[in-house]
Design a binder for these strands. Structure first.
Lengths: 222, 222
DNA sequence: GGGCGCGTGGTACCGGGGTACTACGGGGGG
DNA sequence: CCCCCCGTAGTACCCCGGTACCACGCGCCC
């Protein structure tokens, strides 16, 4: 039995979801909320397995509410439901920590399957959005995976050189690298020089780009 | 009516899929293949709407076959099906141009729903894999989307300065930027200096990292 | 008209980065 | 045993990048 909290500013919409979830035995609607603030409060109080979250709401919107519920660290998973498949919503929801993103025109079975998946710790994305997400993220998949053959330039690096490349990818200067690795700056320069030669980069800048392209560096959420 | 090509090295597995797809009216199995090479050939010959592709096969594997079918540019969409939810497979399949990735332990309705979605141009990912994909790609979502408030540093840049930042993000030297923008190098240095000051970067290197973090630069598939 | 932001351009200076070359000790394989 | 790779370290040199400061023309708004 999975417990559900329904969040939507439209009473009729809540009623519809409530009816649907009551029609199957495995879900139990434990509460409703009409806006973000109420959602955050009730999620903390009722500790539902799944929060069905609308995006567009007066006051605190669904994204901010999702962020707070996710940040609270409880075991509630948020499934975002919206009428509009705007990329910004999807991006924002994912970043906010949502476990799912479905459109309100989904068929009832899809919604129930989504709730089941989210409750069990998995995640779901509406197929119409998945296509765009895949197209967007495909370039970020490191080339050394996926291309069958690993980039030979990566393989040519020694362990130490790969460490140095990662450090360069973080934007550290030679002096900083020397300090953190407890090395002389000369040694660092030697390593960096060899790395540049091996990967075919003229600058440390192109080494940074290389590192990003090959998954050795990734955006930090500092 | 969506036409389907079944690719799997196990005859019994093909038989099972065939039976399942024959049991519903909206799919029509137009062929089978036992390995990658045959799959590529039959896909070109039969032009199915959807290719049900196994990953592990002797000879040419499903990933390579997917790559070739996708590269051929026909309207066939590939739905990869595998027993193992290894991240490498998922990554490789997405990079190869697959439109979907499901596990063989999926329920029949899920498989059929997946085929429908893929045939209509959407994409599907098994919920168990979606979670890991989301966790992996969330950092790549540019901070200026998703965080509600746009990064004020980005907004402070003029149009020209943003262009310059993008160019810096590509790893171009001041000289190259000057050449491509038809400017003097002095002007470029002035712009770069202002950009660095505005975004709070000490180097052009950290400007490159900033560009990646904020979605102004992304891995190129050169 | 006077200001101001923006894009353009210049000079001068200096420090970090990159290259070339050399060197040496340790570990592993022929 | 000897050699080679690897990691370490140094010196010398040059150039690009970054900073500081100044300058001018254009468009826009008060």
């Amino acid at each position: 039995m999975t417990t559900v909290l329904i969040v939507d500013d439209q009473p009729l919409q809540r009623y519809g979801f409530h009816l649907l979830l009551d029609s199957v035995p495995e879900t139990d609607v434990v509460g409703e909320a009409a806006h973000g603030a109420e959602a955050v409060r009730k999620a903390a109080e009722l500790r539902p397995d799944v929060v069905l979250m609308d995006v567009r709401m007066p006051g605190m919107d669904g994204i901010e509410a999702t962020r707070r519920i996710a940040a609270a660290g409880g075991r509630s998973r948020v499934l975002v439901l919206t009428t509009f498949d705007l990329d910004e919503y999807v991006h924002a929801a994912i970043r906010a920590g949502a476990s799912g993103f479905l459109l309100k025109d989904a068929r009832p079975e899809e919604l129930l399957a989504g709730i089941r998946a989210v409750a069990s710790g998995d995640a779901v994305i509406a197929p119409a959005l998945t296509r765009r997400l895949l197209d967007e993220f495909a370039p970020y998949i490191p080339a050394h995976r996926g291309d069958g053959a690993e980039d030979p330039r990566l393989g040519s690096l020694t362990d130490r050189e790969r460490e140095i490349l990662v450090a360069v990818g973080k934007g550290w200067t030679n002096g900083e690298i020397a300090a953190r690795f407890v090395l002389s700056e000369s040694t660092v320069k030697t390593h960096v020089g060899r790395v540049l030669a091996k990967i075919g980069a003229r600058d440390r800048i192109q080494a940074v780009i290389f590192a990003y392209d090959h998954g050795l560096a990734r955006p930090s959420t500092d």
